[in-house]
Design a protein around this nucleic acid. Structure first.
Lengths: 348, 348
DNA sequence: CTGTTAGCGCGTTCAT
DNA sequence: ATGAACGCGCTAACAG
């Protein structure tokens, strides 16, 4: 046909249109075009319209690198977490994007691995872009990461858990308390040999284990043999595997507080496979209250975490922190909610 | 205590360390430090080490905006898709990140909404950063988006489906063929009244519908009343809802080819709730083969898509396209695999 | 192998 | 309300 797409593209790269191209065409100076774009109210209406028309015609697109360099303001907010792509973060990301849409900020995600080295790599990478803010899924305990966050030259919001003093700001829930509520619920339903099944023991999972353990110890029912997990990421398959292990190591186990809903779902399937009736023979409580929890059969009791709101307000906190000098709220606990469903609805 | 974190941070922003700070300290010129960092082999070993030591001591971090501006090379690859956070893209993102790790590229994700306007917004945003490449989950049909991609001044890889001529390059599978295979499988298992249950009819879903329809029409079994969907994103809950509707509108329906595994799982749950035996009374085939498909009870038949490899090789294609002038492979079909499991294992 | 010069495209500052 | 000069931090191109 015509020339290859490759050469066409290469050519285009050369004729990049700059601010002064537009200015020249419109018969004004570059700075006026710049203002017409960023601070329209500072340019007289007729001129403004004329400029915007030229911008449109020429297909001018501002160069964000140049803008960031000149203004020392990248407008970039970095969001970082291991396993950011997990189902549980979907609502979080929606919240973030919704809040960002009406601002001039932009978001960049980094789905780091769980190891410290990779997280540091990603953090440094954000820092090299003069970020306007950082959102970090507190998963820490690592002093090197803490240190980097504490010295970051921008607002930092640690999200999901608020049970400890944040480097800068934090928003989320108290995972220790949430676990207590869930565990008490299982006790109230008459379960006694209660297990905790989970995956990687990140910071939040450890907090939940603390809550779980505290409640059961108070009741004189805690048994470390009922706490099962393996390293690595959680999955439905892992839930199946853990129930298997649990029932072979402790056949009398009669309920499980699960690390998340994926695990809970796996446990449910494995119960079905083994002919264990849920909730009569075995009770299941998940965590996060993902969309499917309410639709499983039986529906899965879970702990609802306000993930959308956490994301929305995390961005909000960054905007506020950048805006005013008055020190804003540093720690926000949004609370959780135990959603009781069929998987723990044992009667008698 | 001491001063607030806010003022501390503000101070830090001022003492940003630049290349010439390091150069001064090390007693060399700025460009030499720059080279020591980017092209170490061009600097004599002793000098290089001395410089890197100073870099380390001063905590110098390169400014990517300045680098991008000066070199006209941002090294940024934009990944864009509606619903990027869905469970199905987890493996894709892993593949992308794994390939990128050994390169000097960096990834930025944009999880656009499904509407054209938002997608255009995100695309323009990428383009304003001089991207080194674009990865787009072909979901199109929209001429405005096609046009933007075609004229992008960088390599563009459309991923997931390869059933049509790409703007630039494409890698994925043929969704039409995949649907044919799945539908034939249901026929072979003896199902006759076969439904297609889905969510948003994006490009790939439409392709699958074509394949589904072609096979059933050939068998004289296609019935438009058995194609059910609603607008909006898919979910387990939607799967439940659709089975409900299906059984009330067409009580004799005996199998479903589902838009994805989420829908399939919802259908499975709803069957359980209704006391419909799977696979005897009702057969279920999903799509994607997410991790849980193999662990459900019964395990769910699904179509495995090589998502990890698609991500990995998409980045690879961008790197190759940027590297050589020889025009590389434009369209790569990675193939799919029907994974037969219990949910369609009807005997007789 | 190392340094000098020049400028990437834009926004800030200060003038008009 | 508009513009001129300058520099952000870095690297390309050339020089030595």
């Amino acid at each position: 046909m015509s020339m290859t797409s490759g050469s066409r593209k290469r050519r285009q790269r050369q004729d990049k249109i700059t601010l002064s191209d537009v200015a020249h065409q419109a018969g004004v100076s570059a700075i006026t075009v710049s203002r017409a774009l960023r601070e329209p109210e500072k340019v007289s209406p007729p001129l403004r319209e004329a400029i915007l028309k030229v911008v449109e015609e020429m297909g001018y697109v501002p160069d964000l690198a140049a803008r960031a360099l000149a203004s020392k303001n990248s407008g970039l907010v970095g969001v970082m977490s291991p396993g950011l792509t997990s189902h549980a973060f979907l609502a979080l990301i929606r919240g973030i994007e919704d809040r960002v849409r009406s601002s001039d900020l932009r978001i960049q995600y980094a789905s780091a691995e769980t190891d410290t080295e990779d997280q540091l790599r990603q953090l440094r990478f954000f820092l090299s872009q003069n970020p306007a803010g950082l959102i970090h899924v507190g998963q820490i305990g690592d002093p090197a990461i803490d240190d980097l966050l504490r010295h970051a030259p921008c607002p930092v919001v640690e999200i999901m858990d608020v049970s400890r003093e944040p480097s800068d700001m934090a928003i989320g829930i108290d995972h220790r308390q949430a676990a207590k509520t869930a565990t008490r619920h299982l006790l109230e339903k008459g379960y006694r040999r209660i297990a905790m099944l989970g995956g990687a023991w990140d910071f939040r999972a450890r907090r939940r284990l603390e809550g779980f353990r505290a409640v059961l110890e108070e009741a004189g029912l805690f048994d470390p043999a009922l706490v099962l997990s393996i390293d690595g990421s959680t999955s439905v398959g892992l839930g199946c595997h853990l129930l298997d292990r649990l029932k072979s190591e402790a056949p009398d186990a009669e309920a499980a507080f699960c690390h998340n809903d994926d695990i809970a779902l796996g446990v449910l399937f494995e119960c079905q496979r083994r002919g264990l009736a849920v909730p009569q023979d075995f009770g299941i409580c998940g965590f996060n209250d993902l969309d499917y929890a309410g639709f499983a059969f039986p529906a899965i009791t879970s702990v609802r975490v306000p993930r959308y709101e956490i994301g929305y307000r995390a961005v909000d906190m960054i905007i506020r922190a950048a805006g005013s000098d008055t020190s804003p709220t540093k720690r926000v606990d949004l609370g959780y909610q135990l959603v009781q469903r069929g998987s723990t609805a044992r009667t008698g």
